[in-house]
Nucleic acid binder design. Sequence first.
DNA 1: TATGAATGAGTGTTCATTCAT
DNA 2: CATGAATGAACACTCATTCAT
Lengths: 190, 190, 190, 190
Amino acid sequence: MARPLSEEKRTAILAAAAEAVADLGVGAPTAKIAALAGVAEGTLFTYFESKDALFNQLYIDLKLEAGVRMIAGYRSGRDLPDRWRQVWDQYIEWGVANASSRKALGQLEASDRIGESARYVGAQAAQDVAAELYEGRNIGLLGEQSSNFIAGIFVALGDMTLDFIDREPERRERLKRAGFKALWNVISGR
Amino acid sequence: MARPLSEEKRTAILAAAAEAVADLGVGAPTAKIAALAGVAEGTLFTYFESKDALFNQLYIDLKLEAGVRMIAGYRSGRDLPDRWRQVWDQYIEWGVANASSRKALGQLEASDRIGESARYVGAQAAQDVAAELYEGRNIGLLGEQSSNFIAGIFVALGDMTLDFIDREPERRERLKRAGFKALWNVISGR
Amino acid sequence: MARPLSEEKRTAILAAAAEAVADLGVGAPTAKIAALAGVAEGTLFTYFESKDALFNQLYIDLKLEAGVRMIAGYRSGRDLPDRWRQVWDQYIEWGVANASSRKALGQLEASDRIGESARYVGAQAAQDVAAELYEGRNIGLLGEQSSNFIAGIFVALGDMTLDFIDREPERRERLKRAGFKALWNVISGR
Amino acid sequence: MARPLSEEKRTAILAAAAEAVADLGVGAPTAKIAALAGVAEGTLFTYFESKDALFNQLYIDLKLEAGVRMIAGYRSGRDLPDRWRQVWDQYIEWGVANASSRKALGQLEASDRIGESARYVGAQAAQDVAAELYEGRNIGLLGEQSSNFIAGIFVALGDMTLDFIDREPERRERLKRAGFKALWNVISGR
DNA sequence: TATGAATGAGTGTTCATTCAT
DNA sequence: CATGAATGAACACTCATTCAT
């Protein structure tokens, strides 16, 4: 099947899926997703072969979006810590502003519906960002590790920080700074 | 009393649930769990009021077990870094040895079947360990943070490290050390 | 609209439910009802939200049908006893011809699955008939009673008569006449 | 199995069954009945072979009880209408005082769990009372009918009256009198 | 292509009855 | 005999997917 008629509908379905998954987990019925998207139950299946296909696509989209937002406005001119901080702040801000996307992503990540290939694409997004910052250089004692591992640490600390912010929104700024300090300690430590 | 409730069966059901959830996620059918445990479908419900009740109990058990294993053999005499390393190593070892428990825990954590009270108990387990190490002292520049946050960092880095080990088991020792270095950098950083 | 909801299927399900309930009581499985109606198990639930909803609708339908049959062919020109006899005969004939509808109605009536609103609609049907006959006039010494009570007596004697006919079908005519005599005695008595 | 040990327990189970059936219909779980009776789930089955056996026995007991109460204090000396009225009043009073027994009876009556033999015994109880009053004499134009039919009318009108009293308890006396007038009209009518 | 009715396998839970203690 | 844990068939209802319109 070639590109389906309405890109608009496709997008609406993906957005509806994100919302439904954030709310109800991967058990969210396709019927509810379709309703949220304002299309008929059957229509969903002309845009996506199956529920799994839809979720895999959603996973990739959300991962890419997070990645894009992270480097948006990234300025290479600054010094290293500033560049890291910049990316960190973007990530946290994106997470705060898109809490439900993040929640959906978490659900998808945990589920067994996301295949290897989607995961690979998702992982790439994170690594690309890290590589950008890493610049092939050794950073402190972790130098021997791949940018992979750095990306993992970044995301782990970022998500943890966002979880804390979810629970204590009023401490947002403090938590964001504390999270970054932790990250920077990791990176700059000997 | 007639045949008393068998602690053995209760344990078998819990173990079966862990296995099933690790394999199939929280959608694992109670029928399969019962079969794995070697009991009749109905028996599961004499030991646990509902699937949710079973999963909440499983969540608590796994969290507590992880906590217990972490401080098992903890020796307070050593110096601070050694004590942290000791706990870190225990956590990683537990995670490696109980990969499926950890996977189950992840599924449970993400699902909406775990109620507040179970989450509270679970969170306590992690904090207790952190508090033990934290000893009320300020640690580096993060000193202003609660032991809460430190526990969060510990778990985040630990889980991330375990995820890497899952994918590259042959680099286990190296990853374990790198993970600890990251953790220690956070803790000791100025 | 795609395939529209088929009135035919809806009717088939209702009829199947009547038959199943007459046979097996309100415990009749929805699966059996669906099979009797010649539709898939799930289809039943696209026509009725739940088993209870189905049963409430069935109750109303049967009540209304009984009411309609009762006044069918009613001729207001005749004298009072003739009019009553006419309605009585219709009720008995309907009951004899629709023994299973009547049985189903009995089961439904006794069950706790019929909500207030359905009962109200059902009661209205009976009262409307009685009011028609009652014509606001005082009838014998019972005059002080509401048409309500007269309707109750009518139905009580009618159902009892039908129960006797069920057990001794060969005495049908005699029982029908005896039942009416009882009713007329009540109505005309001083 | 000979008579079981404790007549007391047997009675408790029957009473519990009446209560449970009045509340929940014939679907009342044996476990709940046992609990209400203060015995273990299994014990119920040493006193009654099955749920059906219990319900059949309960049906007979309740029918007999109603019959006994009806003729309690019956004085043959009075004149005919007084004797009928006396029995009528007893029935209504019993019904009012034992609303839940009556409700249970209704549930049992409608269910398919009551076998022919129990129904026969039950029917006997009602007929015995009627026969007592009927005294072999012809009563009005209904004379050709069996005492059977008279008993049927009595019970039909009595139950209907009780149903009205259930819904409008404050009109109890008036309804009781109206019901009797209806009954007496039937009996004495030419 | 869009729609939503139709399908039937799959699910959590209940419950009468059995039987080990 | 009394107990209540164990059993597994049965049930109402859900849902991804298909397909007639």
